[in-house]
Design a binder for these strands. Structure first.
Length: 554
DNA sequence: ACTATCACCCTCTTTCGAAG
DNA sequence: CTTCGAAAGAGGGTGATAGT
C-alpha cells in the first residue's frame, strides 16, 4: 500500500461520487491508493475560499480536466513549519519561484501567517474545516512519541509503511544527530512526493537540485549513522555474547571443580570405610584366634594331649575342585595322628592324606549333609548342594571337593545299608558305629517325616539286629536327630571338639559328657546307645533350630 | 591270613528339562 | 507327545589299608 499525502493545488472540479478510501474532507472520488487530500471541500465546496485549498482526488479518478493535477508533496516539514516562522518564510520564498497554481499560492499565502496554524488548530479542535489533515497527522504521529512529536514528524514512516520506523528511537538517540534535524529525516520518505514535485515543477530549478543534493547528503549521513549504529549494536551484542560465554565457561569450570571435589571426598570416604572394615576384620580375626587358642589350651589341659588345628585358610570350593581334578588322594585335609596307625604318618602334621576320611571329618560331613537334608529332598540338581556341602566342610577346615563329599556320603550310606542288610552283630568298636548311629537317626527322622527310604526301612526292619539299640527308641533317636539336624553348623569347629561334646551331651554322658570331649565318647558304642535310649527333649531346640537352620542355610 | 573298612570307578536306572 | 541328553542315585566291583 502506498500512502501519498498531497495537497491539491488545483481546484477540483467538484465532481462528486466515487467511493475511495481517500481521506477526503469532502466526498472525493476514490483511487487506487490511499491519499490524504487536503482540500477545502471537494466538489462540495461552496465558496471560493474553499476551492483554494481543498483535498483533491487522484488524477484520472474523476472527470477533471486537469489530468495531472499540480500535486505538491506534502512536506511534513512544511506542515510543521507552520508553527515556525523560519520554515514558513522559507516556503514563502519557494512559493513565488514555483509555477504552482494559484490555489497553492493562495494556500501558501494563507498559511503565510503564523496565525494560520493556530487557526488551523482551532479548526481542528472544532472538528471540521480545512485543516482536518492535522488531526489525521496528529493521530498518526502522536502515538509514537508523545512529547517528541516534533522530532518524529519527519519520519513519515508511518505513512509510507516503511520498516525504518522501528529505527526511529535509536536514531533519535544517535549522537551527533541533532534533534532539530529530525524533521528533515522525512525527506527520504517523500520520494513519491518528489516525483510529484517533479511533475508539478517540470523544469528543474537550481534550488531543487540543491535541495536534492542536500537530501542525498542527509540520506548518506543517515545511512552512515545507521551503519555506525548497527556496528555499535552488533559490537554490543557480541560483547554481551562473549560475556555470557565467559559466564557459561566459568559456571562449567566451577561445576567441574565441585564435581571433582565431591568425587575426591567420596573416594576418601570409601577409603576410610575400607580401612575401617579391614581393621574390624583384623580385630575379628585376632579375637577369634585368641578365643581359639584359649579353647585349645583348655582342651589340652583337660585332655593332656597336644591338639593340632586344621589349616586356617580353608581352600575355596574352586580350589578344592581343582585339586580333585588334579588327582584323587591329593587333597589337603586335616589330619590327626591319633586316627592313623602309628608309623603311617607324622602325628599332628599336615600332609596330603591318603584320602581316607578321618572320623571327625565323616561326622562333620554327616552334620553338614543332614543339615541340608531338606534341600536335598527338594527336586532339582544336587550339584550345587554338594558344592555347598563342600564349602561348609571347607569352612569347618576340611578340604574336600563336592565330588568327594558326595562319594563319601554315598559310600557310608552303602556301608550302612549293607551292614543293616547283613544283620550281623557289629562290634561296638567298629569304625562305622559312630556315624551309623547318625545315619540311623537321619533315616528314622526321614521315615517319620514321610520320606521312606529303603535304608530306613531296613533300619527299622533290623532294629533289633546288629545295630543294637539303634531302633529301640525311635522317638528318642528322632528327637536327637532333630537336634543334630537343626544345628548342623553350630558344631563347626576344631575336629572332635564341639560335636563330640554335643554328642556326649546328647548321649546322656552325664558325668563325663563334657569332660570326655575327645574321640572316646563316640567310640563307646554302649554309651551312645544308652544316650539314644534315654533320649533328650529337643522340642525347644527344634523351635530355635528352624530359624538357625535358615540363617545358616544360605 | 583274614576280615572290615574305605576310596574309587563303573554300570544301570530313573528323573527331569529341552528340543523337535 | 516323543526323543534325547544330562544329572542323580543306586548298586556293584576292585584294590588298598588297617585291625585282629
Amino acid at each position: 500500500m502506498n500512502f501519498k499525502l498531497a495537497v491539491d493545488a488545483g481546484g477540483g472540479s467538484g465532481a462528486t461520487g466515487g467511493t475511495d478510501d481517500a481521506l477526503n474532507d469532502g466526498a472525493g472520488g476514490g483511487g487506487s491508493g490511499m491519499m490524504l487530500h487536503v482540500g477545502a471541500g471537494g466538489g462540495g465546496g461552496d465558496d471560493e475560499a474553499a476551492t483554494e485549498s481543498r483535498l483533491s482526488r487522484w488524477p484520472g479518478d474523476e472527470e477533471t480536466s486537469i489530468k495531472e493535477p499540480a500535486w505538491r508533496p506534502l512536506d511534513i516539514d512544511y506542515l510543521h513549519s507552520t508553527s515556525g516562522s523560519k520554515r514558513a518564510g522559507k516556503e514563502k520564498v519557494a512559493t513565488p519561484e514555483s509555477p504552482a497554481p494559484a490555489a497553492a499560492a493562495n494556500y501558501f499565502k494563507k498559511s503565510d501567517d503564523n496565525a494560520v496554524a493556530s487557526a488551523a488548530a482551532a479548526a481542528v479542535s472544532a472538528g471540521g474545516g480545512n485543516y482536518k489533515l492535522f488531526s489525521e497527522l496528529e493521530a498518526i504521529y502522536k502515538p509514537g512519541s508523545g512529547g517528541a512529536g516534533v522530532a518524529q514528524t519527519g519520519s513519515g514512516s508511518g505513512l509510507t509503511g516503511d520498516d525504518n520506523a522501528i529505527l526511529e528511537p535509536p536514531m533519535a538517540d544517535l549522537p551527533g544527530e541533532p534533534a532539530a534535524d529530525a524533521p528533515q529525516l522525512n525527506t527520504s520518505e517523500t520520494s513519491a512526493g518528489e516525483d510529484a514535485a517533479a511533475v508539478v515543477q517540470p523544469q528543474p530549478q537550481p534550488s531543487a537540485d540543491a535541495a536534492r543534493r542536500k537530501r542525498k547528503r542527509r540520506r548518506q549521513e543517515q545511512l552512515s549513522a545507521s551503519a555506525s549504529f548497527f556496528e555499535r549494536l552488533v559490537q554490543r551484542l557480541m560483547e554481551q555474547q562473549e560475556s555470557l560465554h565467559r559466564q557459561f565457561l566459568d559456571a562449567m569450570e566451577r561445576r567441574e571443580r565441585e564435581r571433582a571435589a565431591r568425587d575426591e571426598a567420596w573416594r576418601r570416604q570409601e577409603a576410610d570405610k575400607f580401612a575401617r572394615e579391614a581393621a574390624a576384620r583384623a580385630q575379628d580375626r585376632a579375637s577369634a584366634a585368641a578365643r581359639e587358642a584359649a579353647i585349645i589350651a583348655y582342651l589340652e589341659k583337660i585332655s593332656g594331649e597336644s591338639i593340632t588345628l586344621p589349616p586356617a585358610p580353608a581352600p575355596s570350593a574352586d580350589d578344592i575342585s581343582q585339586d580333585a581334578a588334579a588327582g584323587v588322594g591329593k587333597e589337603l585335609v586335616p589330619y590327626e595322628g591319633g586316627d592313623k596307625a602309628p608309623g603311617s604318618g607324622g602325628g599332628g602334621m599336615l600332609h596330603f592324606s591318603t584320602s581316607r576320611w578321618p572320623k571327625h571329618e565323616v561326622e562333620a560331613l554327616i552334620r553338614v549333609r543332614t543339615g541340608l537334608e531338606g534341600r536335598f529332598q527338594e527336586p532339582g540338581l544336587k550339584g550345587p548342594l554338594w558344592e555347598e556341602v563342600s564349602a561348609r566342610m571347607a569352612a569347618a577346615g576340611y578340604g574336600r571337593s563336592a565330588k568327594r563329599c558326595k562319594e563319601k556320603w554315598e559310600n557310608i550310606n552303602k556301608y550302612f545299608r549293607k551292614a543293616k542288610e547283613s544283620g550281623k552283630k557289629r562290634p561296638a568298636q567298629a569304625k562305622t558305629c559312630p556315624y551309623f548311629d547318625e545315619l540311623d537317626r537321619l533315616y528314622s527322622r526321614s521315615s517319620s517325616g514321610g520320606v521312606q527310604s529303603s535304608a530306613a526301612v531296613d533300619t527299622n526292619a533290623n532294629a533289633g539286629g546288629s545295630n543294637v539299640g539303634a531302633g529301640d527308641d525311635a522317638k528318642g533317636s528322632s528327637e536327637l536327630l532333630d537336634a543334630v539336624v537343626k544345628y548342623p553348623d553350630v558344631h563347626y569347629g576344631p575336629p572332635g571338639f564341639v560335636f563330640d561334646r554335643e554328642q556326649s551331651e546328647a548321649c546322656g554322658g552325664g558325668n563325663e559328657g563334657r569332660e570326655d570331649a575327645g574321640d572316646d565318647g563316640n567310640d563307646d558304642g554302649d554309651g551312645e546307645e544308652d544316650g539314644i535310649g534315654k533320649g533328650r527333649g529337643g522340642d525347644d531346640q527344634e523351635e530355635e533350630g528352624e530359624s538357625h537352620d535358615h540363617d545358616d542355610d544360605h
